Simulated scan of single mutants.
Amino acid sequence: MARKKNDSAGGVLLIILICIAAILILAPLVIIIYGIYVSFKINRYQPKPTKISDFWLDLVEKQKFELLMENLYTINHAIDRAHSMAAQHNISVNKDGSYNKRSNKGKEICLILDKYNPLKNKCIENINYLRFLPSNLWNNYSTLLSHHKSCYFSIASWVLGFIGVCYYYKLDAISTFTNYITFKSSNHMVFIISGVISMVIFFLCDFIIKQGVANILPPKPPIVSMENLNEY
Rank of each mutant, 00 (worst) to 15 (best):
I223G: 04
D80M: 06
L57D: 06
I174K: 14
I75H: 03
T50I: 10
I33A: 14
L29N: 10
S135T: 06
R81G: 14
L204G: 15
L160I: 13
G97W: 11
K41T: 08
G161K: 05
V38R: 01
N140M: 10
H148E: 07
I223R: 04
Y141R: 00
C205R: 01
N76L: 03
I155T: 02
L133N: 02
L29V: 15
A21T: 14
M85V: 01
G97N: 10
N121Q: 15
S39H: 02
C110G: 10
I208L: 13
F40R: 12
S225A: 04
G11E: 08
G35R: 03
N187F: 13
Y180C: 03
Y168F: 15
A27G: 08
S53E: 15
N136S: 02
K149C: 09
V224H: 01
I209D: 04
A27M: 15
H83W: 12
N100I: 04
D54G: 02
I163W: 12
V224I: 11
N90G: 05
N215E: 04
N140S: 11
I16F: 07
P47I: 05
K220Q: 09
E227P: 00
L144M: 12
L26R: 13
Y37L: 02
P218Y: 12
H148Y: 12
I223M: 10
K210S: 03
D172T: 05
Q88A: 13
I112E: 14
M69A: 00
S53W: 11
I18H: 01
I208C: 00
M189E: 15
I216E: 08
I181T: 03
G97A: 13
I52A: 12
E70V: 07
P28M: 03
L160S: 09
G106I: 11
K48Y: 04
P134G: 07
I193A: 09
F132A: 01
R131D: 00
V30W: 07
L59S: 01
I163C: 07
L160Y: 07
Y152P: 01
N228T: 10
L229R: 00
D80N: 14
A173Q: 11
E125W: 01
D96Y: 04
V213C: 05
L17E: 08
N126I: 00
N215C: 03
P221K: 09
K48W: 05
I216N: 08
L72T: 02
V224E: 04
W56I: 08
K122A: 14
D96C: 13
L68K: 01
E70A: 13
L26K: 12
K5R: 12
F162Y: 10
D58G: 02
C110R: 15
L13C: 02
P221I: 08
G195I: 08
W158E: 02
S186R: 10
K41M: 13
I223T: 09
S135N: 06
L111S: 14
P134W: 00
D80G: 11
K220P: 00
N179R: 02
N90S: 03
S198R: 07
